[in-house]
């Protein structure tokens, strides 16, 4: 007898995997990625590196985090086993985050740049030691 016979909503039941090898493999992948992220984080902390390398490493860490998120959602949450239409109803709304992140970080950066340009007191209080890349307000110092 089908073990899921009482759940009439499911037409096809995914044949459950016999062993747990896929789960453990995913665990080791997640563990490995986390260790690499930590290594990169400590690398940034311990070694004096130019600002562009710093930004590059942070970019790599973000991409590694996205890989971790993919493995958790696809394997642990079994979303990869669902039918395509259902995956799309979940994945497509999340694309809003692309605009969301770009727009708001741009806005924060714009606020900082304007404030530095027009509020010299704020700039003197906070800017002396740490200058971020791509800050156009710095030209006024030259």
């Amino acid at each position: 007898m089908d073990q899921l016979s009482q759940s009439t909503e499911i037409t096809y039941h995914h044949e459950p995997a016999e062993d747990t090898s896929r789960i453990w493999k995913t665990f080791w992948i997640l563990l490995g990625i986390t260790v690499i992220e930590l290594g990169l984080g400590l690398f940034m902390y311990l070694l004096p590196i130019p600002a562009w390398v710093d930004v590059f490493i942070k970019g790599v860490i973000v991409i590694l985090t996205m890989a971790k998120a993919f493995y958790i959602v696809s394997i642990f949450m079994h979303l990869g086993d669902e039918i395509r239409n259902m995956i799309m109803t979940i994945a497509l709304p999340l694309l809003l985050f692309i605009w969301f992140i770009a727009a708001f970080l741009w806005d924060g950066n714009e606020f900082r740049t304007s404030r530095n340009r027009y509020d010299k007191h704020f700039q003197e209080q906070t800017m002396k030691r740490q200058i971020r890349m791509g800050d156009t307000s710095q030209h006024s110092f030259e």
Partner: peptide, 30 residues
């Protein structure tokens, strides 16, 4: 299915929090 849709809404809540954190962080020199 409804658990999935709840989790999407929760993802947007957390996303909004983290992005507002990022916005403030990008607005600071230090």
């Amino acid at each position: 299915l409804m658990m999935w849709y709840f989790l999407i809404s929760d993802a947007f809540t957390f996303g909004a929090f983290l992005i507002s954190y990022g916005t403030i962080r990008f607005s600071q020199n230090y």
